[in-house]
Design a protein around this nucleic acid. Structure first.
Lengths: 106, 106
DNA sequence: TTAGATTTGTCAAAAAATGACAAGTCTTAT
DNA sequence: ATAAGACTTGTCATTTTTTGACAAATCTAA
């Protein structure tokens, strides 16, 4: 089952038997804010991904994938984007890639 | 072929033979900023969608779909999200929907 | 060249995200 | 029951990001 990024952090934290305060300290943030992150009331700041990976000995690329898919999933959810529209969005992303390619050739 | 939202606005503007200055005035913004929007250097502010729909007699829901798919497409592009990861993101969106549903039953 | 159209650079203002603190609730051990 | 620690929530100042406006530049066609 897929989880939100916040739930994922909580899972990691519990597996490693850390309190909010302990993990927050390692991440250089307030336990209150970490609580909000775990509960989906705030976003985890992307700049802390390397630190998070290090703390739990995770592969940074994979962790970033977790993060990105969470963010885009949230975007899809918040905009009520249907599967059909998501297909269109994917095509538009592809279009941007071709735009970028043709820029580079010049 | 899919286009960016900025290119779409430019298309509409040209079809209707308006200058940047003319359309910008109808949208209550500066022609310089509209230029940046059309050229993908700024985002169109979502709050102007109703006005844009009215100016060009477009269905607001469809226009919003154009907008949303552009935004998500941009997000996909900027994060280098592959098709495989996008599938994961979609599953996470679905998960958020179930979360929301179970909240509502309580 | 000149006029109008468009683009670019810059900066202040507005809006959104973040961090921190205080005070609250919940849980568990005694 | 209550004390301690864990967690949650509300609020606000700070920081960051986005937006709007103006001035100056470039481009284009007569």
């Amino acid at each position: 089952m897929k989880t939100t990024f916040g739930e994922y952090i909580r899972l990691l934290r519990n597996e490693n038997e850390l309190t909010l305060t302990q993990l927050a300290a390692k991440l250089n943030l307030d336990s209150a804010n970490l609580s909000k992150i775990e509960n989906g009331k705030r976003d985890f700041d992307e700049k802390r991904l390397p630190k998070l990976a290090k703390i739990f000995k995770l592969n940074l690329t994979e962790l970033r994938n977790e993060y990105v898919t969470d963010q885009i999933g949230k975007h899809i959810y918040e905009t009520n984007c249907t599967k059909q529209l998501l297909q269109v969005a994917e095509e538009k992303a592809e279009y941007r890639r071709t735009l970028n390619k043709s820029l580079q050739t010049q």
